[in-house]
């Protein structure tokens, strides 16, 4: 019992000294859109901190594969619809975790602390 508590305390101390960073889930997104909308779709994915991995032409549609943070995709269905006049579709799946950029991490931590604080009351 004593060792358990000691280990917990030791871990917390070591953690703070080890430069902790925030990780966020990244999704692999596959977007299919008509060729004439491809520019706005790629532009939008970039604005969402996405990394375009691959673009491939299929008939009259283009298929874009990108790595995008999950946090940026919560309402993507609606956005893609309006960007492509309803012609685009997409599928996504979890890819991996990656570091959140520092300025953004500060904001997320801030928001989260307010939320946990509110929930505790």
């Amino acid at each position: 019992m004593a060792f358990k508590i000691a280990a917990s305390m030791g871990f917390k101390k070591a953690l703070e000294a080890a430069h902790p960073v925030l990780l966020e889930p990244l999704m692999t997104v596959e977007v299919e859109a008509p060729a004439d909308h491809i520019g706005s779709v790629i532009g939008d994915l970039n604005a969402r901190r996405g990394r375009i991995l691959h673009v491939e032409a299929k008939d009259q549609t283009e298929q874009i594969t990108a790595l995008v943070p999950m946090a940026e995709l919560l309402t993507y269905a609606t956005t893609l619809n309006s960007l492509t006049a309803g012609r685009g579709s997409y599928a996504m799946e979890f890819a991996r975790y990656d570091e959140v950029p520092r300025e953004l991490a500060v904001r997320i931590i801030e928001v989260h602390k307010v939320e946990t604080h509110a929930a505790a009351h």
């Binding site: 508590i5 000691a6 030791g10 070591a14 080890a18 966020e24």
Partner: peptide, 20 residues
Amino acid sequence: MPKIPYRETIRITAQAQGKY
């Protein structure tokens, strides 16, 4: 809106003592 399942990790190696 669903919460994003963030996680944390470390960048460098560190040592510490835990004493109870």
